[in-house]
Amino acid sequence: MNIFRLLGDMCHLVAIIILFLKIWRSKSCAGISGKSQVLFALVFTTRYLDLFTSFISVYNTVMKVVFLVLAYATVYLIYLRFRSTYNSESDSFRVEFLLVPVAGLSFLENYAFAPLEILWTFSIYLESVAILPQLFMITKTGEAESITTHYLFFLGLYRALYLANWVWRYHTEGFFDQIAVVSGVVQTIFYCDFFYLYFTKVLRGSGKMTLP
């Protein structure tokens, strides 16, 4: 464990908690892409199956359980509890255009042709594109509430910190996970446009982010 990965995990946890609390307290999921949240729940489900097969550390196990519970709880809030506030017409990204290529690629490019390994690879590839429905929804509606932009900021920052973690681990222990690194770079690149808007608009105190 290193500071970059710890900070990254904390940013990830903060992002997930920000979103959950926003929906829970405002009793509304307006402007939130339910599809992205379903994809994130799928990412955690396919990645954390080793919860039952291998124990790494208390931290590892606790974080995996927390991420799984919060991910499913958020999906529950969006599609069940506050479904009347869900903008399904704005959440129109065709997720099958993500799932099919990601599933195909995870069978082609992986470290081992074994069920857990394929599922782990699938979760890594899927995570890199899971935010696209949410970013697409924001471009479609042309705006995002500031709390939603803070959620996206921490979510984008988490994987950027993981990139720093991989640089650190490469230089200190020769660790290099090609699949995770390439996907992490792609994932972080998708946030670049958002980061620009976030720093130039939201942090200037203009509150809501309205796209040009």
Partner: peptide, 10 residues
């Protein structure tokens, strides 16, 4: 590629 790498990352 090392398939048995410890997946200690979240």
């Amino acid at each position: 590629a090392d398939s048995e790498k410890d997946k200690d990352e979240l």
